[in-house]
Design a protein around this nucleic acid. Structure first.
Lengths: 204, 204
DNA sequence: TACATTTTATAACGATTGATTTAAAACGCA
DNA sequence: TGCGTTTTAAATCAATCGTTATAAAATGTA
C-alpha cells in the first residue's frame, strides 16, 4: 500500500538515546540527531514529530532500559543484596563511563524538567519509583531482621535515593573509586541489623 | 583619556549569573544574556570576551558568593552546628527556589564540565573544597567528642557531600520538605556522638 | 579646542537553528 | 501495468546563532 520504512524504530531510538545522553537536549541539533540515527531530518520528523518528541521517546526508552529493567532484576533478591547490587552496579557504571555521560534521567532533571511541566512529571515519577524500590527493600529487610529499624524505612529510602543522585553528580567531575565507595559506606551502615538484645538492654 | 564604562562590572556579572543560572549555558543566547545584563552584545564582548568567558566569570562569581561565603560563615561555629546550619540553609533554599534554578555549580557539573576540561577542573575543585569543609568539621567534632568516630571522617565527609548533591538534584523535580528533611535525618544520625562506655562494653 | 582612546549603538556577517517543501523512489493493491 | 500512499532524498524556509565591523558618543589630555 505504501513505501515501507527502511529503519527499525527501536534501533534508531537507541541511537537517539546515545546522542541526547551524551550531548544533552540543547546542544544536540536536529542534524546531529538525524546523523546519529542514520536518518535524514525529514525521516526524523515524519516518524517522531519534532525534536522534543524524539527526546521524550528517547528518555522513555532510557528509563525502561535502565531503571525498570534494573529494579526488576534486583527486586527478587534478598533486601540487603538487592540494595548492595544496585549501588555496586551504579558505582561501577559511573567509574567506567569514559564519555562522562552520567545518568540521562539526572541530566533531564536538570536541563529539561525545570522548564517543561511534562518532563518534570516524568522525571519525578521515575524518582518516586526508585524511592519505592528502596522502600520495599528496606521494609522487607526490617521485617526479616536483615535491616535494622533504628530509622523509619521511609527516611532510609530517601537517604538511599539522595545518595544515588549524589553519586551520579559527583562521578561526573570526580569519578574516583575511593570517593564513591567511601561515600556509600556509612550509608550502608545505616542498614545494619539491630544490635543484640543484650546491647539493647545496655542502651536503656 | 577615553570614554568611561556606563556599567559596573560586578553588577552586570550578577545579572549574568541570574540568566545562566536559570536557563543554563546552551539555552542562553548572547542576546538573552546582553538583555539580562542591560548591555548591548558589543559591550558584552568588549568587556568579557566571548560567551564562554562570561559564563566562566559568572560561575566564579556564583561560587564565591555561594560557597566560599557560606563555608566562611559556618566554619567558626561548633562542628555539629556548622553542618546542621549548612544543610538547613541548603534545604531552605531548595524549597523556596520558585524558579527551580537549583545550584549553578551542580548545573555546570552536568551541562558544561563533561565537555570542557577547564570547567571540569573548576567544578571538581569546588567540590573538593566543600568536601574539605565537611572533613574539617567532622575531624574537629570527633576530637571534641561531639561527633562519633564509628566511621572514618573522610567517609563521613564524602557522605555529606553526596547527600548535598543528592538534595540539590532531588529538589529540582520534587521540592518536598518531608522528602529532603527525611533524607538527611539518617545521615545526621551517623554523626551522633559515641555511645557511653557501658554500652561500648556491652558491644564487645 | 583638537586629539587619542574607549565605549557605545546599530547593523550586519556567515553559519546554523528547527522545521518544511518538493519531487523522486518504493511498496501493496487494483 | 497503473494508482494511491508513504518514505526517502535534497533543497530550502525564515529565524536565530555567536561574533564582528562601522561609526557616533564620551571622556582625559595636549
Amino acid at each position: 500500500m505504501a513505501r515501507p520504512r527502511e529503519f527499525d524504530e527501536e534501533k534508531v531510538l537507541e541511537l537517539a538515546v546515545e546522542q541526547f545522553w551524551e550531548r544533552g537536549y540543547e546542544a544536540t541539533s536536529i542534524r546531529d540527531l538525524a546523523e546519529a540515527m542514520g536518518l535524514t531530518t525529514a525521516s526524523v520528523y515524519n516518524a517522531f514529530g519534532d525534536k522534543r518528541a524524539v527526546y521524550r521517546r528517547a528518555l522513555d526508552f532510557y528509563v525502561e532500559r535502565s531503571f525498570v529493567d534494573r529494579v526488576g532484576r534486583f527486586e527478587t533478591k534478598s533486601p540487603r543484596l538487592a540494595i548492595d547490587a544496585f549501588f555496586s552496579e551504579i558505582i561501577e557504571r559511573s567509574l567506567s563511563d569514559s564519555k562522562r555521560k552520567g545518568c540521562m534521567l539526572v541530566n533531564s532533571a536538570l536541563e529539561v524538567a525545570p522548564h517543561d511541566a511534562e518532563f518534570q512529571r516524568v522525571v519525578a515519577d521515575v524518582l518516586v519509583q526508585v524511592e519505592g524500590f528502596f522502600l520495599r527493600c528496606i521494609q522487607r529487610g526490617q521485617e526479616d531482621g536483615s535491616i535494622g529499624n533504628r530509622h523509619p524505612a521511609t527516611n532510609l529510602a530517601r537517604t538511599l535515593l539522595g545518595s544515588l543522585l549524589g553519586i551520579r553528580v559527583l562521578a561526573r567531575t570526580r569519578p574516583e573509586k575511593e570517593l564513591l565507595e567511601g561515600l556509600i559506606q556509612p550509608v550502608f551502615a545505616l542498614l545494619e541489623p539491630n544490635a543484640t538484645k543484650q546491647l539493647e538492654a545496655a542502651r536503656s
